[in-house]
């Protein structure tokens, strides 16, 4: 898609969280009321850039995630735009009720960043590989849920969040992933983007899984299957119009995410299509299981999330659909 200015190759790697760190620093420069809070993970959540530039606007709360978000709520009540970061397993993993009451129901524009989300957390194992964050945040009224596809998009998403009036959640990954967009690629909260056009199947992906989805589309092309790839960096509010438009054309859907399919992107798309355009679909993602230690690529293979697995899921879906027709 030439108007999306995607990267010409996808050889450059960078952790998505680094884009958040740069975006936060930039947001701090642009807006005086942007403040940041961390729970003893300043550098690994990439907040050190902001902390060094704006020490008076930086609050270290210690290992206390319930306090992290509620202090954030109080700062927002005084007109600040607080970015609060920890690992996703702890925030929003541990402090969901505080987020629900003091941020969502209370409607304060706190920006919650869950770093080290998904299998890309790798060696740390199941305790730290947060796979339920999308589901947890998606059910909350007022909450916006964002999962950028690379570090460049994460930087833009961070700036967009800083000027969004709602509570926001953004998940970012630990290990380096390919950069698939450029500075010119558009990003708007609530918009999905067709990263590749196709006619036989729609791959709907979010976060780190858009890269393998694009790879899968290339594999499928060799097999004579034309796959459209819709990148969904905002899971809530979901860009139903873009998704439905694509699915009306392809009539087959495979969702791809590095999170639980129950309540995740797969759940969200199934809800959308179930009510508006019932379609044969397969959800690729974590299927009601926990992760384990390993390198990210080992884990993606083990749990059926590699590009080859995605391509296989498409073949199975299309075969099943063809059989149903007879």
């Amino acid at each position: 898609m030439s108007d999306l200015f995607l990267a010409e190759d996808r050889k450059k790697l960078e952790p998505i969280r680094k884009g958040y760190g740069r975006g936060l620093l930039e947001a701090g420069k642009r807006w005086d009321n942007v403040v940041a809070l961390c729970a003893d993970l300043t550098e690994s959540t990439q907040m050190h850039l902001f902390a060094e530039a704006f020490p008076k606007r930086y609050v270290e709360v210690g290992v206390a995630e319930q306090n992290l978000v509620t202090v954030g709520s109080g700062l927002a009540a005084m007109g600040k735009i607080p970015f609060v970061s920890s690992y996703a397993a702890f925030s929003p993993g541990r402090n969901w009720e505080q987020i629900r009451t003091t941020i969502c129901l209370n409607d304060q524009p706190v920006k919650i960043i869950g770093s080290h989300a998904g299998l890309y957390t790798g060696a740390d194992g199941a305790t730290h590989q947060m796979l339920e964050d999308i589901a947890l945040m998606r059910v909350l009224p007022n909450m916006v849920v964002i999962a950028p596809g690379d570090s460049v998009e994460a930087q833009k998403a961070t700036l967009a969040m800083a000027s969004d009036k709602r509570p926001n959640y953004m998940r970012v990954a630990r290990e380096a992933t390919p950069i698939i967009t450029t500075d010119k690629t558009p990003f708007e909260i609530g918009k999905a983007y067709v990263f590749r056009e196709g006619s036989d199947v729609t791959l709907i992906s979010t976060g780190t899984m858009t890269y393998p989805a694009l790879e899968a589309a290339e594999l499928l092309e060799k097999d004579g299957v034309s796959a459209e790839v819709v990148h969904v960096p905002t899971i809530k509010p979901l860009d139903g119009a873009t998704i439905i438009k694509s699915v009306e054309k392809t009539k087959h859907v495979v969702t791809v995410e590095e999170a639980q399919i129950i309540g995740g992107l797969g759940g969200a798309v199934a809800e959308l299509l179930g009510e508006n355009l019932p379609t044969h679909m397969t959800r690729v993602g974590m299927k009601d299981r926990f992760g384990e230690s390993g390198k990210p690529d080992e884990l993606l293979k083990h749990f059926g999330l590699s590009s080859a697995h995605i391509a296989m899921a498409v073949h199975h879906l299309m075969l099943d659909h063809a059989n149903h027709k007879h």
């Binding site: 403040v35 609050v59 319930q66 306090n67 509620t70 202090v71 954030g72 709520s73 109080g74 700062l75 927002a76 009540a77 005084m78 007109g79 600040k80 607080p82 009720e97 505080q98 009451t101 003091t102 129901l105 209370n106």
Partner: peptide
């Protein structure tokens, strides 16, 4: 907004910091 207990002091602390 409050009801679920234990989060008022931390919100007050955030306000005081702000």
């Amino acid at each position: 907004t409050s009801g679920p207990l234990g989060s008022g002091l931390s919100q007050a602390a955030g306000m005081a910091l702000g």
